Amino acid sequence: QSFTCPYCGKMGYTETSLQEHVTSEHAETSTEVICPICAALPGGDPNHVTDDFAAHLTLEHR
């Protein structure tokens, strides 16, 4: 399964590499985005909106 960065649209990330990408490239970004990992999880929330995606990844998807 691969994920797309909700900020810049780059594709092909794993859960881990998406977290690394967001932390390095978009750490200061506070735009509201939908978490693509939550959306892909069975029973996950397809509409989970977060305005601190880097922190959300760290808390929810480590």
Rank of each mutant, 00 (worst) to 15 (best):
S2D: 12
S2M: 09
S2W: 03
F3N: 02
F3V: 05
F3M: 02
F3W: 01
F3Y: 07
F3I: 11
T4R: 05
T4W: 01
T4V: 08
T4D: 09
T4H: 04
T4E: 12
C5M: 00
C5Y: 00
C5L: 00
C5W: 00
C5D: 00
C5K: 00
P6G: 04
P6M: 02
P6D: 02
P6K: 00
P6Y: 02
P6F: 01
Y7S: 05
Y7T: 10
Y7E: 10
Y7W: 03
Y7A: 13
C8Y: 00
C8N: 00
C8K: 00
C8R: 00
C8M: 00
C8L: 00
C8A: 00
G9T: 09
G9D: 14
G9V: 13
G9F: 13
G9L: 13
G9P: 11
G9H: 06
K10E: 11
K10I: 04
K10D: 15
K10T: 07
K10A: 08
K10F: 03
M11Q: 11
M11Y: 09
M11A: 12
M11H: 15
M11E: 11
M11S: 13
M11L: 08
G12D: 13
G12V: 03
G12R: 06
Y13M: 08
Y13T: 08
Y13Q: 10
Y13G: 05
T14Y: 01
T14K: 12
T14H: 11
T14N: 14
T14F: 04
T14V: 12
T14C: 08
T14M: 06
E15G: 06
E15Y: 04
T16C: 12
T16A: 15
T16P: 15
T16V: 10
S17R: 10
S17P: 10
S17W: 03
S17K: 14
S17L: 13
S17H: 15
S17Y: 09
L18R: 04
L18Q: 06
L18V: 02
L18T: 06
Q19R: 00
Q19S: 07
E20F: 03
E20L: 07
E20C: 05
E20V: 08
E20G: 13
E20Q: 12
H21G: 12
H21C: 03
H21V: 03
H21P: 03
H21Y: 04
H21D: 00
V22L: 04
V22W: 09
V22P: 01
V22A: 09
T23W: 05
T23D: 13
T23E: 12
S24I: 13
S24Q: 14
S24A: 12
S24N: 13
S24E: 10
S24T: 12
S24P: 05
S24L: 09
E25D: 05
E25C: 07
H26S: 06
H26D: 06
H26M: 05
H26P: 03
A27M: 03
A27R: 14
T29S: 12
T29V: 15
T29N: 14
T29K: 12
T29E: 11
S30I: 07
S30M: 06
T31D: 05
T31P: 03
T31L: 13
E32G: 11
E32F: 03
E32L: 06
E32M: 09
E32D: 06
E32T: 14
V33Q: 03
V33T: 02
V33I: 07
V33A: 11
I34W: 01
I34Y: 00
I34T: 12
I34S: 08
I34K: 09
C35M: 02
C35L: 01
C35K: 05
C35F: 01
C35N: 05
C35D: 03
C35W: 02
C35Y: 01
P36R: 03
I37N: 04
I37Q: 05
I37G: 03
C38H: 05
C38L: 02
C38R: 05
C38K: 10
A39E: 12
A39S: 12
A39Y: 06
A40Q: 10
A40E: 09
A40F: 07
A40K: 08
A40H: 07
A40D: 02
A40R: 07
A40N: 10
A40M: 04
A40V: 09
L41G: 14
L41Y: 14
L41F: 07
L41Q: 15
L41A: 13
L41T: 15
L41H: 14
P42K: 14
P42R: 07
P42Y: 04
P42T: 06
P42M: 05
P42F: 05
P42C: 13
G43L: 04
G44E: 13
G44L: 07
D45K: 14
D45V: 09
D45S: 13
D45L: 07
P46T: 11
P46D: 11
P46I: 07
P46A: 06
P46S: 15
N47W: 07
N47S: 13
N47C: 09
N47E: 14
N47H: 09
H48R: 15
H48T: 15
H48D: 13
H48V: 15
H48K: 14
H48P: 13
H48Y: 14
V49W: 12
V49S: 11
V49Y: 12
V49E: 04
V49K: 15
T50G: 05
T50C: 07
T50I: 12
T50R: 12
T50N: 04
D51W: 06
D51I: 10
D51M: 14
D51Q: 15
D51F: 10
D52R: 14
D52G: 03
F53G: 05
F53R: 04
F53D: 05
F53A: 03
A54S: 10
A54V: 07
A55M: 10
A55S: 14
A55L: 10
A55K: 10
A55V: 09
H56T: 01
H56W: 00
H56Q: 01
H56Y: 01
H56A: 01
L57A: 06
L57H: 02
L57Q: 02
L57G: 03
L57E: 06
L57P: 02
L57M: 07
T58F: 06
L59S: 13
L59D: 13
L59Q: 15
L59M: 14
L59E: 14
E60F: 13
H61K: 01
H61S: 00
H61C: 01
H61P: 02
R62I: 14
R62K: 12
R62Q: 10
